[in-house]
Nucleic acid binder design. Structure first.
Length: 515
RNA sequence: GCCAGGGUAGCUCAGCGGUAGAGCAGGGGACUCAUAAGCCCUUGGUCGGGGGUUCGAUUCCCCCCUCUGGCACCA
C-alpha cells in the first residue's frame, strides 16, 4: 500500500428520508474513495447518520415508538440508499454507537477540564412550541411569528464552549492553507464570517427538555446538543486496523453546513483538543429540480433517486451526478437531462463502442484478440493508444473536478468511435490481404475497451465489472496504472458482448415539474 | 447595505486583448461492425446595457440592470 487516505461525508440527519442531495454527496465520496483505492492507498471512507436530537425524539413520539427504534428504521433507509448506489464505505457511522458516545464524552470531559467549556445562565425568549430559544432577530414586525406559538421569557443554565479565543488562529490557518477550503471562493465567505468576534456556543440541553442525546460526563442531567454529538463522529471511527488515522485528507460537505458548523465550530473544536485540521474541506453545491429550488419542507420539490436507480441502474445515476455537476456549483436535475446523458453518453457512445468492438472480434477473429506485435502503426493507431488521457483523468480528479475527469474519459470513447469509422473493419474483413491491418484495428479496440473499464471504475463500478466480464478478465478493483496502454490481451479469448445500457422507454418520474 | 460569483447559440456551459467555441437539440450526407447505434458536414450568437482605455474588447476599467450565494442590519 502507498500510504493511507481518509475521507468522510457529512452524516445525514435521520429525521427526513434520503433524497438526491444525500445520494450525490455519497457518490462523490465513493468516487474519490475508489480512485484512491486504485492508487493502492489504504482507504478509510466514513459516512453515516446523525440520530440524536429533538426532531428525532418528536418524530418517534408522534409515532409512539422509542427514539432508538425510529432511528434504527431510518438509518436502514440511508444504508439501503448507499447499497443501491454502490457506495462502499469502510464504516457506516451511527451516532448512537457506543464507541461514538464514549468519544463524545471523552472530548467533552477533556475540554471541560481545560476550561474551554463553562456553565452559564441564559436569559431570553423561549418558544414552547419549537422548544428552543428565539432571539429578537426572529421577530417579524415586532411580533413572534405564528410558527413559534407561545413565546415566554425564561432563564435556563447551560454549558457553553468558547470560540473567540481561537478566532485569530483560525484566520491564520485559512491564510496559511489556501487549499483547505475547496472551491476557493468559499474561503472568502468563511473569512468574512470570522471578521467579527464569535459568541460562545451553547452545547447542552437539560434532559427535561431533550432526553434523546448523549449525557454530559460532568453533569448527567444534561445531554450535549448537535455539534459535539455530530461533528465528533469523524474522529470516533477514524481507525484503520485498530490504528488511529488523523487528520482526514478530505471531508465532503454541502454548502449549507460550511458556515458555521464545519468552517468555524469544527476547526475550533480541533484546535481546543490540539488535533490537526482536515487537509481539505470540499464544499459541494445543491441540486435544483427543473430549475426550482429544492427545500426540505416542500416534499414535492424533493427528488428521490431510487426510481432512477431502479430503472436505469446505479451507474446511470452516478454518472449523471458526477458528470453534470461542476463541483462546488449548483446544478439542475431533470428527466430530459438525465435521459440525454443516459441514452447519449452511456448507451450510444460507451455502450455501443463496447458492443461493436467485441462483436467484431467475435465475428472476424472468433473472439480471440489478435496479436499485432511489430505490425506497422498509423498516426491514428498511435493516437488511440496514447496515455495522455490517463494523466488528464488523474489531474482532474486531483483538482476535485470529476466532471472533467469523465469528460476526458469520454474523449477517449469518442476517439475510439471515430477510429472504428475511419478504419471500417467490416471492409477490411472482406479483403484477405488486409488481415494484418484488421488485426491491428481489432487489437487496439480491445485494448481501448479494456483501458476504459479501468478509467470508469471509480465513477461506474458496476459497468466496469460488466465490461471486464465481457472481456473475460478478472473482476474486482484494478490499479489505475492498468489504464496505461499495454498488450495484455494478445491472444486472449473474450466473452460474449452484452448490451450495457439498454434503451429505456420511460421512467416513473421522481422529479416533478416546477409549479 | 457589504462581500463574492454569474449574465456568451434554443438548452447546459467553456473561452477572458487580436474580427466567437463544445456538448445536447435542429438540418443534410455517406456507411452498415453495433443499442434504427456510430461517423462526417451543417443552421444558429450585435458575448446583459451604457461609457472609457487601446490600433483593436466577449476578454481590462467605471457605472447601471439582473440572477445566485454568504454576511450584516431593521422590523
Amino acid at each position: 500500500m502507498v500510504g493511507s487516505y481518509f475521507l468522510t461525508t457529512a452524516i445525514d440527519y435521520v429525521n427526513s428520508a434520503p433524497h438526491l442531495g444525500h445520494a450525490y454527496e455519497k457518490v462523490l465520496a465513493d468516487f474519490f474513495s475508489r480512485h484512491e483505492l486504485s492508487l493502492e492507498r489504504d482507504v478509510l471512507f466514513l459516512t453515516g447518520v446523525d440520530e440524536h436530537g429533538q426532531k428525532v425524539q418528536q418524530s418517534a413520539q408522534r409515532e409512539g415508538v422509542e427514539p432508538q427504534a425510529f432511528a434504527d428504521r431510518m438509518s436502514a433507509r440511508f444504508r439501503e440508499q448507499h447499497r443501491s448506489l454502490g457506495v462502499a464505505s469502510s464504516h457506516f457511522v451511527r451516532t448512537t454507537d457506543d464507541q461514538h458516545k464514549k468519544i463524545v464524552r471523552d472530548w467533552l470531559q477533556k475540554l471541560h477540564d481545560k476550561g474551554e467549556i463553562f456553565f452559564q445562565e441564559h436569559e431570553g425568549y423561549y418558544s414552547v412550541r419549537q422548544e428552543q430559544f428565539v432571539t429578537e432577530k426572529d421577530r417579524v414586525d415586532g411580533q413572534w411569528p405564528e410558527i413559534f406559538g407561545e413565546v415566554i421569557h425564561t432563564r435556563e443554565p447551560n454549558y457553553y464552549f468558547r470560540l473567540e479565543p481561537y478566532r485569530q488562529k483560525l484566520l491564520k490557518h485559512l491564510e496559511d492553507h489556501p487549499e483547505w477550503i475547496v472551491p476557493g471562493f468559499r474561503r472568502k465567505e468563511l473569512q468574512s464570517a470570522l471578521a467579527e468576534p464569535l459568541a460562545d456556543l451553547c452545547i447542552s440541553r437539560p434532559k427535561s427538555r431533550l432526553a434523546w442525546g448523549i449525557p454530559l460526563p460532568f453533569n448527567e442531567d444534561y445531554v450535549t446538543y448537535v455539534w459535539f454529538d455530530a461533528l465528533t463522529n469523524y474522529y470516533s471511527f477514524a481507525s484503520i486496523k485498530g490504528q488511529l488515522v488523523w487528520p482526514p485528507d478530505l471531508q465532503i460537505i454541502g454548502k449549507d453546513i460550511l458556515i458555521p458548523a464545519h468552517g468555524v465550530y469544527w476547526p475550533i473544536m480541533l484546535f481546543a483538543l490540539e488535533l490537526e485540521l482536515p487537509k481539505h474541506l470540499l464544499v459541494h453545491g445543491w441540486w435544483t429540480n427543473r430549475g426550482a429550488k429544492i427545500s426540505k419542507s416542500d416534499a414535492k420539490s424533493l427528488i428521490d433517486p431510487a426510481p432512477y436507480v431502479e430503472t436505469y441502474g446505479p451507474d446511470a445515476l452516478r454518472y449523471f451526478v458526477l458528470r453534470e455537476m461542476v463541483l462546488g456549483q449548483d446544478a439542475d436535475f431533470s428527466d430530459e437531462r438525465f435521459e440525454t446523458r443516459y441514452t447519449g453518453d452511456l448507451g450510444k457512445k460507451l455502450g455501443n463502442l463496447v458492443q461493436r468492438s467485441l462483436s467484431m472480434i467475435g465475428r472476424y477473429r472468433n473472439g480471440v484478440v489478435p496479436n499485432y506485435d511489430g505490425f506497422h502503426l498509423t498516426a491514428a493507431d498511435e493516437g488511440l493508444r496514447s496515455d495522455v488521457i490517463v494523466e488528464e483523468y488523474r489531474r482532474a480528479v486531483e483538482q476535485f473536478a470529476p466532471h472533467l475527469a469523465l469528460q476526458a474519459v469520454w474523449d477517449l470513447v469518442a476517439r475510439a468511435n471515430e477510429y472504428v469509422e475511419e478504419n471500417a473493419p467490416w471492409k477490411l474483413a472482406k479483403e484477405p490481404e488486409q488481415a494484418k491491418r484488421l488485426d491491428v484495428v481489432l487489437g487496439l479496440l480491445a485494448e481501448t475497451v479494456r483501458r476504459l473499464s479501468v478509467l470508469i471504475q471509480a465513477a461506474l463500478p458496476f459497468t466496469a465489472e460488466k465490461i471486464r466480464v465481457q472481456l473475460n478478465l478478472s473482476t474486482g478493483p484494478v490499479r489505475l496504472e492498468e489504464a496505461l496502454y499495454g498488450n495484455s490481451l494478445h491472444g486472449h479469448t473474450i466473452g460474449k458482448p452484452e448490451v450495457l445500457f439498454p434503451p429505456i422507454e420511460k421512467v416513473d418520474s421522481g422529479s416533478s415539474p416546477a409549479p
